[in-house]
Amino acid sequence: MDDESIITRARWARRGALGILTVIALIAVIGLPLYVFPAVPAPPQADLIYVIGPPTATRIADAESLRDQGIADRVLVSVPRSGNDSAEKLSYCWRSYVTCRTPDPFTTRGEAALLSAYASGGDTVVVLTYTPHVLRTRYIFDTCAKAAVTVVPVDERLNLTRWVYNYAYQTAAFVKAGFVGCADPPADALP
């Protein structure tokens, strides 16, 4: 191999690396308003506050804060069937104004269906989730839930790895949501 072909290959390698970095930077910039800084409306007066899974301490604290502000008196929490966050083990579920239920399926689509069992078309609901999930949650709940929904992000800290994962996951899940449709409300979920 002569010196000129080595130099040519090195140039192509640099251009390829620069192209890949440019695509990554472009994806990151496009995703900023979608996943990092979604539009956040002020929570309206509502009939219900809905914490969608998992019921992290931050989401529960935000639900309590909204309740203390008088946004709504009732709280619905999406919980898994088993484990530390299940209705049986999560002490927050024992409060008189809190209802904890497991959606079927245990997905955002299932959570929208569960909400339809609790809220009518005239109800307003504040839904709490983490920031990268806001846009897809709005789409699914606007499409599948009967109630008027305002999705509010909670401030859950994510490291760079989690942000990269969420960019990929939320994008793929958003595309899937466009094809899958809505789930049926569970018959046994009624309050």
Rank of each mutant, 00 (worst) to 15 (best):
D3H: 14
I6G: 09
A13S: 10
G16V: 10
A17S: 13
L18E: 02
G19V: 08
T22N: 06
I27A: 14
I30H: 07
L32S: 10
V36A: 13
P38D: 03
P41S: 09
P41N: 09
P41C: 02
D47R: 13
I49L: 11
V51Y: 03
P55D: 04
A57M: 12
D62T: 15
L66Q: 03
R67N: 08
D68M: 07
Q69E: 13
V77W: 00
S78L: 13
V79I: 13
P80V: 12
P80F: 09
N84R: 14
A87K: 11
C93D: 05
W94G: 15
T99H: 09
T102N: 07
P103K: 01
D104K: 02
F106A: 09
R109W: 00
E111S: 00
A112Q: 01
A113G: 00
S116I: 01
Y118F: 13
Y118Q: 06
A119K: 03
A119G: 02
S120N: 07
G122L: 07
T124S: 14
V126A: 05
V127M: 10
L128T: 03
H133V: 08
R138W: 11
A147L: 08
A148R: 14
V149E: 02
T150M: 02
V151M: 09
V152H: 07
V152A: 04
V154Q: 03
R157Q: 12
L158S: 05
N159D: 15
N159R: 11
N159V: 10
W163I: 13
V164S: 08
Y165F: 10
V175Y: 01
K176R: 15
G178W: 01
G178H: 06
F179R: 11
V180C: 03
G181M: 03
C182P: 00
C182R: 00
A189C: 04
P191K: 10
P191G: 12
